[in-house]
Design a protein around this nucleic acid. Sequence first.
DNA 1: ATAAAGTCTATTAAGTAAATAGACTTATAT
DNA 2: ATATAAGTCTATTTACTTAATAGACTTTAT
Lengths: 167, 167
Amino acid sequence: MKISQKGLYALQALMVLARRYNQGAIRIRDIAYEEGLPEKFLELILLELKNARIVESVRGAKGGYQLRRSPEEIHLSEIIRLIDGPLAPFGDAEQLRGLIDNDVEHRALYQVFLDVRNAAVRILDNASLADITHQKSGLSRQGKSRKKKTKEATLLPMVVGGRGRDE
Amino acid sequence: MKISQKGLYALQALMVLARRYNQGAIRIRDIAYEEGLPEKFLELILLELKNARIVESVRGAKGGYQLRRSPEEIHLSEIIRLIDGPLAPFGDAEQLRGLIDNDVEHRALYQVFLDVRNAAVRILDNASLADITHQKSGLSRQGKSRKKKTKEATLLPMVVGGRGRDE
DNA sequence: ATAAAGTCTATTAAGTAAATAGACTTATAT
DNA sequence: ATATAAGTCTATTTACTTAATAGACTTTAT
C-alpha cells in the first residue's frame, strides 16, 4: 500500500470540506487555494469522490462541493482504497496468486503480508476525518459514540524512527 | 509501502538460499528455475543483495550465491527496505514535509500514516527468512533466542477480509 | 442573457518498473 | 594453456502509471 500524491490531495480536500461541514458548498477553486493543490487535477479527484458518494456537488453558479456524510463517518481507509486501491502491501492480489496456492513457504510469506495489511486496515478503518480535523468528539453532532479515535496512535510506544532509520 | 515484483523476486530468491543455507553456492540459473523467475532480471537483484551484504557470490565455474548470514538473522524489513525503499505508506518523507510543519490537522494526518508505518515495521522486523522457510526453531544453530517469530501473525484475529473486501 | 460554477474527454510529459542484451571478468577443470 | 562455466557491469527497450493540463460542454443563479 502506498499513498499517492492524488490520494493525499483527496485527503487534503476532504479535510477542508470536513472543517466546513454543514456550511454549504465550497468551490473547487477555494479548496485548491486553501491547500495549495492544482485546481484542474483536484477537479478530477472530486469527481471521483462524488461518484463514490463521499461528497456531493452543487452545479451552476454558487455551486461547489460538500460532504455527503458527517466527518465521523468517513474513514481514511475508504478514501485510500478508493483512490489508491487495496490496502495490501502487494500490488495486486493477483501478483501473489501463484504464491498462495503453492507450497507452505510461499503461504507463510503471504501470511506476513496479510498481517501487514490487516494492521494497516485496523488503523485506517479507525481514523475518521473528524479525528483528523480535531472535530472534538463527534458526540456533539451524532448520537453515535465512535470514540476510539487516536487510540492506536497513542498506544504505540512512539518509536518514530523504527530501528533508527527514516522511512 | 508497496512490495514490487522485484521485491517479491528478491524474497523468493532468498528463500531458496535460506533452504540451502550452509550447503554451498547456488547458481543464478538454478534459483531462477526453481522459483520461475526471469534469469537476467534476477541477476541484477542478486547483485543488489550482494552489495547490501546480504548474500555473497562465488565467481567462476562452480560459482553461485549463498547467504552471508543465517536465515534467522535476515528480516523481511531489511530486504523490502533495500529493494522497495522506506516502509512508510507515503512515497517519500519529502512528500509530506509540507504537511508535517503546517497546522495541527496536517500533523494529525501525518501521525496516522506514521502509525501505519510503525505497525508494518513491527511485523516485518519480526519476520525472518527462517520463520518463512519453517526452519523450525533457529535455536538449533544459533544460541540466540529470537523466538517471537510468527507471533504477530497468530495474534491477529485473522480477519482475512478486513471489512469484507479483498485487498 | 450572462456569468459562475461543475462535468467530461482527451492528451501530454515525466517517471518508474520490468525485462532483455551483450560484452567483460574471474575461476575451474583438463 | 585453453575451454568452459560462472558471476559482473552497463546500456537499452518497452510498457505502464502518475501527475498535470486543456478545452469544450452543461447546469444554475441572478
